[in-house]
Design a protein around this nucleic acid. Structure first.
Length: 531
RNA sequence: GCGGGCGUAGCUCAGUGGUAGAGCGCCACCUUGCCAAGGUGGAUGUCGUGAGUUCGAAUCUCAUCGCCCGCUCCA
């Protein structure tokens, strides 16, 4: 498995470049320098994403009778997120080590006893003075400990020097001269302190809050706060009872939602994979406590099937059965579905059995009963939840990565040529059909093309093109993943006899092969292949 | 957030203090009877942004934004 986790940055760069060149994805605010972690979808990217979302919705909601859809507000009450644990748990206070700059979670620093040696500053031989407070925690006040503290402090003050000063210090050091004079201010016996790095004794910065949710203000003077939801799930849990009461459904049943969520990611990375604003496709499937584990496995299979249907092969997916201790505390079972991206194996979706944790916290938080009454068994209980939660944007990225291919073609003269093709399954392709007249100057061919375009347009996204040579037009469509191209030629006009009259060439993207079809059969032929 | 690298045309990149460049792509016209043919002409740059040094900055300095790699983080 480990040998499969190889990265291919060159491939990734080609994909990013193609996405920009052909209008799939742009950086948000690019003309102003760009906004970190935010992306805009261009015309083709929007079609691709829409195809993914439409298919997910169709398969998850419309073609099932046990899942209902909803579309919740993005702005979320603070109380909801306090109950869910996001308002607390999303803001871990962090400390930085002043010496190594490593970051530690404040609540995970062990309590230590020892002697803190404080320094108030330092002076370099050439007269440069630095005023900054620093301290090192040592076990005792022995000579050895104090020397250790001194070394750390010199290292700390050296970090704050200019390049030229640092050179002076190094030069003097080589001659065996200590170039920095420290100002020791005090020594302090401490018990149970958490202000020092357990690894090196260095003083840490004050704990700082890292708010992982995005907040906004409203009301006349902006005095009210709300959060941009960090996941779509919470509005489902909050409305679970309303959906239940208004739709005559019985357990087990699910509520599905697609939409934007927001997280103040410390470090957005890997193109659209981790961004601050992203779209989720989530299902909360409510069930009897006895069925939770079984349904988790069933949903995993269901979701794997889905990925196959959108063109992500099973062998590129990895299922991680998150072991005890690594799962969220409330989860009894969690599977991560991962995909082999060019930048490594990364998560696409999590299928988590969340027990009755979510309904439990909201029942408590809101003070309203969310208990379900089973008419048949006369049983009352809080439903358990299985949550398949997929990242929409990262699935779009997976579709792009999976589709991207460079094929080397050799013509009759032995000349090599690289064909760039996005091999989307037709149902995901942004454009389903390219429609071309063989010669753009032939008015009859153009007229027939426009007729075909009008016939197909209500059913699928098509693209008419008469620019440049026909071969070039084919290649342009290859690059954006159009599975079929229709060409109207002289045979269509009946120049080769009545048999071929009103037929067109259909060219296949993947094989580059062609076949002929009557215009009247075109719509049915295509619909069968692009749905 | 830290460390390192980078930022010049739509894309890939050249350009070490003195007039802003190439290839590909794009647009127009000509040519063209099925896989990026050819010809002619054309457009495109706040040299990421802002300040500084200089007679003069894409080039040197500082700051800032963004991208990539490695840490860190990811309920």
């Amino acid at each position: 498995m480990a040998n499969k986790d190889v990265t291919d940055p060159a491939r990734m760069e080609k994909i990013v470049s193609l996405c920009k060149r052909r209008g799939f994805i742009f950086q948000a605010g690019e003309i102003y320098g760009g906004l970190n972690g935010c992306w805009d979808y261009g015309p083709l990217g929007t079609e691709l994403k829409r195809n993914l979302k439409d298919y997910w919705w169709r398969k998850t909601v419309q073609e099932r009778d046990d899942v209902l859809g909803m579309d919740g507000a993005i702005l979320t009450m603070e109380q909801v997120l306090i109950a869910s644990g996001h308002a607390g748990g999303f803001a871990d206070p962090m400390c930085d080590c002043l010496l190594t700059n490593s970051r530690l979670r404040a609540d995970q620093i062990p309590e230590q006893d020892g002697t803190a040696i404080w320094f108030s500053g330092a002076v370099v031989k050439n007269g440069t003075a630095i005023k900054r407070e620093f301290a090192v925690l040592v076990k005792d006040s022995s000579e050895k400990s104090r020397r250790k503290a001194n070394d750390s402090a010199i290292e700390f003050y050296k970090k704050g020097l200019s390049e030229s000063d640092r050179e002076i210090v190094s030069d003097l050091r080589k001659q065996g001269i200590n170039a920095i004079t420290l100002t020791e201010s005090k020594m302090e016996e401490l018990c149970g302190t958490t202000r020092f790095n357990p690894d090196n004794g260095s003083l840490l910065t004050e704990p700082r809050d890292f708010n992982l949710m995005l907040q906004t203000n409203f009301g006349a003077t902006g005095e009210q706060i709300a959060y941009l939801r960090p996941e779509t799930a919470q509005s489902i849990f909050c409305q679970y009872k309303n959906v239940l009461d208004s739709n005559r459904v019985k357990l087990p049943f699910g509520i599905a939602q697609m939409g934007k969520s927001f997280r103040n990611e410390i470090n957005p990375r890997n193109y659209i994979f981790r961004s601050r604003e992203f779209e989720q496709m989530e299902i909360e499937y409510f069930c009897h406590p006895d069925d939770g584990l079984r349904l988790t496995d069933e949903w995993l299979e269901e979701r794997l099937k889905f990925y196959g249907e959108i063109g992500i092969p099973r062998e590129k997916l990895h299922i991680l059965d998150i072991p005890d201790g690594e799962r969220a505390f409330y989860s009894k079972k969690t599977y991560d579905i991962e995909y082999e991206f060019p930048f490594g194996i990364q998560e696409l979706e999590g299928v988590a059995y969340r027990t009755d944790y979510d309904l439990g916290v909201h029942e408590k938080g809101a003070g309203k009963s969310l208990v379900y009454f089973d008419e048949e068994t006369k049983e009352k209980f809080l439903p358990h939840v299985v949550e398949p939660s997929a990242g929409c944007d990262r699935t779009v990225l997976a579709l792009l990565c999976e589709a991207f291919d460079e094929e080397t073609l050799t013509d009759e003269k032995g000349k090599e040529d690289i064909r760039t093709v996005l091999r989307f399954v037709p149902r995901m392709a942004p454009v389903k059909v390219g429609i071309f007249p063989l010669l753009k100057k032939n008015e009859e061919q153009v007229r027939i093309c426009r007729d075909i375009q009008r016939t197909l347009q209500p059913w699928m996204n098509v693209f008419y093109d008469d620019g440049g040579a026909l071969g070039r037009r084919y290649r342009r469509q290859d690059e954006i993943g159009t599975p079929f191209c229709v060409t109207v030629d002289f045979e269509t006009l009946g120049e080769q006899g009545d048999e071929l009259k009103n037929t067109v060439t259909i060219r296949h993207r993947d094989s580059m092969e062609q076949e002929r079809l009557p215009i009247s059969d075109l719509l049915a032929w295509l619909l069968e292949r692009v749905r």
